[in-house]
């Protein structure tokens, strides 16, 4: 009857309405996906560009999304004495650097083996287990270790151990600096994806064609190293193997995406610029008495 007819009309009307609503809903969804894709698109683009230049990389650590800044204090070894065994002579440089000559040299059983070095540090160096092997220089018989916090390396001269050995592979001397009171700031910062860090270097022409990214690790660095209390920025360490088979190390600030130059000469340069401002105040004038002619 009438009610039946109106029911039919209602069904048609609601059908149309629902189709409309559903398409609206789909639209919203598509928008969101587009927004998300934007980020991904850039990433794909980077990958494509790197591929064009035959820059390859192994598995990147893609599970780290945020990290916090940390701060630490340079330990004053001269003031704050530590007990060191097997030492013939202990001296200090700038209060914070400990230089120890061993009474009885300690043999490193296998110079090719990282573990042997780490064992030496654990047994012979104060807080030795918090350092991680960075570089072995077979030509000048020395190895360097950077301090670590939560398994992340602090690429900094203020948390560094350098050991020296003689021809019999016996460690005779080491130097040490140490950061203490290391604290993480509460606020976690969103950090750059590894591929973006690679791109930062690539865009600056630092990674050449046919290179391989061999390793990426998240660590910490500072560009202002000569203060007592220091702040360290989450930093990507990027190891690159060039087409000539040489290994290069780069660092990228993982928060701001800026390449940071941490090699010693550059750090000194930066310090000079900072010091300059203190010592060389803008062109100071002078006074003269002018004699009457």
């Amino acid at each position: 009857m009438d009610w039946s007819k109106s029911k039919s009309i209602f069904i048609v009307v609601f059908l149309i309405l629902d189709v409309l609503l559903y398409s609206l809903y789909l639209n919203r969804h598509a928008e969101k996906q587009q927004m998300e894709a934007l980020g991904g698109l850039v990433e794909n683009d980077i990958e494509a560009r790197l591929k064009d230049d035959n820059i390859t990389y192994r598995v990147l650590p893609n599970n780290i999304e945020s990290a916090s800044y940390i701060s630490g204090k340079v330990k004053d070894f001269e003031e704050d004495k530590v007990d060191i065994q097997n030492a013939e002579n202990i001296s200090f440089e700038d209060k914070s650097k400990l230089i120890v000559t061993l009474k009885e040299p300690v043999k490193i059983p296998n110079l090719e083996n990282e573990v042997a070095f780490n064992d030496f540090l654990k047994l012979n160096v104060y807080e030795g287990s918090s350092y991680r092997l960075w570089d072995i220089d077979y030509e000048s018989n020395k190895a360097t270790f950077y301090q670590q916090v939560n398994n992340r390396t602090i690429y900094n001269e203020s948390g560094l151990v350098t050991i020296y050995w003689n021809e019999d592979n016996e460690v005779v001397m080491y130097e040490q600096t140490l950061l203490e009171n290391i604290e993480a700031y509460d606020e976690e910062k969103k950090i750059l994806k590894p591929i973006q860090a690679i791109y930062t270097l690539y865009a600056q022409g630092l990674i050449n064609a046919n290179s391989t990214i061999t390793e990426m690790r998240l660590g910490y660095s500072t560009l202002v190293p000569l203060t007592q209390k220091q702040v360290f920025v989450p930093t990507w360490e990027v190891r690159v193997q060039t087409s000539e088979n040489e290994e290069e190390k780069y660092f990228v600030n993982a928060v701001d995406g800026i390449e940071v130059k941490l090699d010693a000469s550059k750090v000194e340069e930066v310090e000079d610029t900072i010091e300059e401002g203190i010592t060389k105040e803008s062109k100071l004038g002078n006074e003269t008495d002018i004699e009457k002619k």
């Binding site: 800044y69 660095s221 500072t222 560009l223 202002v224 203060t227 209390k229 220091q230 702040v231 360290f232 920025v233 600030n253 701001d256 800026i258 390449e259 940071v260 930066v270 610029t273 900072i274 401002g277 203190i278 105040e281």
Partner: peptide, 29 residues
């Protein structure tokens, strides 16, 4: 007289005797 501020990327030195401020952001050179 001298106080230094840092956030790991930049440094600011304040000299209380000369009343001057010096801020450096090395990475942007």
């Amino acid at each position: 007289t001298s106080t230094k501020y840092t956030d790991g990327m930049a440094a600011m030195t304040s000299d209380a005797s000369t009343r001057t401020i010096n801020f450096v952001y090395p990475a942007s050179e």
